[in-house]
Amino acid sequence: MGLEDLSHNFLTGNVENLVRWARRNSVWPATFGLACCAIEMMSAGAGDFDLARFGMEVFRASPRQADLMIVAGRVSQKMAPVLRQVYDQMMEPKWVISMGVCASTGGLFNNYAVVQGVDQIVPVDVYAPGCPPGPETLIHAILTLHEKIRTGAITRRKGEGLGIHLDPTGISGKENAAAGASMKMVGNK
């Protein structure tokens, strides 16, 4: 190979592993606090629990700079389109943690106002149980996600688009083309 002649230190490896390693160690969450869980999410970022240990202390206010959306709290019917829009604005690759039972299943609030599980709107990678999950649970969920990133495919993730049900009949006019494109993406698993 000719590598023997090089005099400096070097490492060899797959590009894939390098990319996964880099992605795993710099996951930037979006600040998407909704309810009680958001407070625990902030606690996790503060001094006592210190998310900076995992390269995650930078909560980005702009979704375009974030890789991870932590859906922290119950999602109301009014918030659902906003949440989806924030998700759409995030750059690939992106991940979602559904934090707490309200985000995961609707939890205690089985009623008209709350979306029964955020996975009806966006694909979820990790579900964190608890009401609210303590910072430790959130950190566990984040570590699980890190493991998932480390072992997953770098180009297309498994289950991409699963669980999303866009209703084309509810969309009219100009937006049809864009919606059609996203529908195709969903189907192209």
Binding site: Q77, A80, P81, V82, R84, Q85, D88, G106, N110, N111, Y112, V115, Q116, Q120, I121, H165, L166, D167, G170, I171, E175, A179
Partner: peptide, 10 residues
């Protein structure tokens, strides 16, 4: 009871 998600395009 539960109301089906009325999620529409944003």
């Amino acid at each position: 009871e539960r109301v089906p998600v009325q999620f529409k395009h944003s």
